[in-house]
């Protein structure tokens, strides 16, 4: 939507082994499927395209890390809600 501001939120990672392998794959798929431009960064680090599995894995995100998600596009808030819930859950359980 024209003029909609980018929304941003900080989330703590819930998966026991962090955002590697399977959780990283599922998260990347969800980000790509949202249709919005999603970026993810570790606290104080550079932001990468959340639809890139290599970008996400290369951040080396561990359990308990805080990450900042930013979403730009239609339904940004709804997309953010969905991805936040995903990151907070434990996908290795």
């Amino acid at each position: 939507m024209e003029g909609q501001a980018m929304v941003e939120r900080t989330v703590r990672i819930g998966s026991t082994h962090g955002l590697h392998a399977r959780p990283a794959k599922l998260f990347t798929q969800a980000a790509a499927a949202s249709g919005a431009t999603v970026r993810i960064a570790k606290a104080g680090g550079k932001a990468v395209n959340a639809a890139s599995i290599l970008g996400v894995i290369s951040l080396g995100i561990d359990h308990g890390d805080d990450v900042t998600l930013s979403v730009d596009g239609d339904n940004a808030e709804a997309v953010l809600d969905e991805l936040e819930a995903f990151l907070a859950a434990d996908h290795d359980a």
């Binding site: 392998a21 399977r22 990283a24 990347t28």
Partner: peptide, 16 residues
């Protein structure tokens, strides 16, 4: 399946 799908995503990765 998860490993192979993750590899497929690596092949088509936008950053790459």
């Amino acid at each position: 399946k998860d490993v192979l799908e993750a590899q497929a995503m690596m092949a088509e990765d936008p950053t790459l």
